[in-house]
Simulated assay, not measured.
Amino acid sequence: MATPKTYVTNIELDHNSPVPLYHQIAEPIKELILDGTIPAGAKLEDELSMASRLGVSRPTARRALQALVDLRLVVRKRAVGTIVAPKEIHRQVRLSSLYDDLKQTGQKPTTEVISYEEVSPDEEVSADLRLDKDAKVIKVVRLRLANGEPLAIMTNYLPLEVAPSEKELRSGGLYDAIRRNGDEVFSAQQTISARKARTEEAETLQEPRGAAILTLRRISYNRSGTPIEIGDHVYRASRYKFTISL
């Protein structure tokens, strides 16, 4: 494995300023990480080098790096150093697909269809979709990746008449596919919660066993108020957060 490039940031400190020195160090580095100048995976200089170069105490340099850790912009790895973390994905809670949200924020979304099958739904799914007793649904399980990294496992249940094909779901978002097939998601009811990942989920999402994950259950309706989709999704809490405007 190649050694990550070490970034040394040119910072001018004002020792007469009321702004703490650690903050004067952390802020410029934070901005360079956020605008992509210092990329994910890059290594920052260690606290000893930083303290010597900038003429500050080692505890001040350590506190500056810790401030970046607290913001989840960097991680400190034993025997490796301080590494810039992958960008978290912040998703505004709204009626849109994860695929579209990732594209709009400059990410590169891809999809792996884990399974696609016609099944008899359980009582809860059948009731939520208002189906007849013997009706079947399409159950599709997908892994959504952002820039090649696993982000979410998405399980969806769709009535046969609105379900896109497996091929459509491999190349785009669910809601776009539904629109192309003549229907549209107009409103939804959803619940967001959190729990620990099951073993298989943790392996698929490349998280430690028992890691925290976010869950979302959404029932979507078309313009006439007919339920046309149920989504049971799990997201990596280490890479993903929802934002809600009230």
Rank of each mutant, 00 (worst) to 15 (best):
L68T: 01
V56C: 07
M50K: 02
I213R: 06
Q92N: 03
I153T: 11
I153L: 13
P20Y: 07
E31L: 11
Y99G: 01
V93G: 00
E27V: 10
S165R: 05
E149A: 14
L169E: 10
E45N: 04
P28Y: 08
D232R: 10
I33H: 00
P20C: 08
T3C: 04
E31R: 08
R195H: 06
V74Y: 00
I192V: 11
K43R: 15
V80Q: 10
A26G: 02
R142G: 04
A177M: 06
Q24G: 08
E166V: 13
L216E: 15
L205C: 05
L54T: 02
G172D: 06
E168K: 05
E201S: 04
P4V: 12
G172T: 07
E47W: 00
A42N: 03
T204L: 04
A85N: 02
P4F: 13
V84C: 01
G172F: 05
E229A: 15
M1K: 15
A51H: 02
L71V: 01
D46A: 11
I38M: 05
Q92E: 11
V93D: 03
V185P: 15
N156P: 01
D122A: 15
H23S: 11
V125Y: 03
I230W: 07
E12V: 15
A194K: 13
E149R: 14
V234E: 05
G173W: 06
D132H: 05
L95S: 10
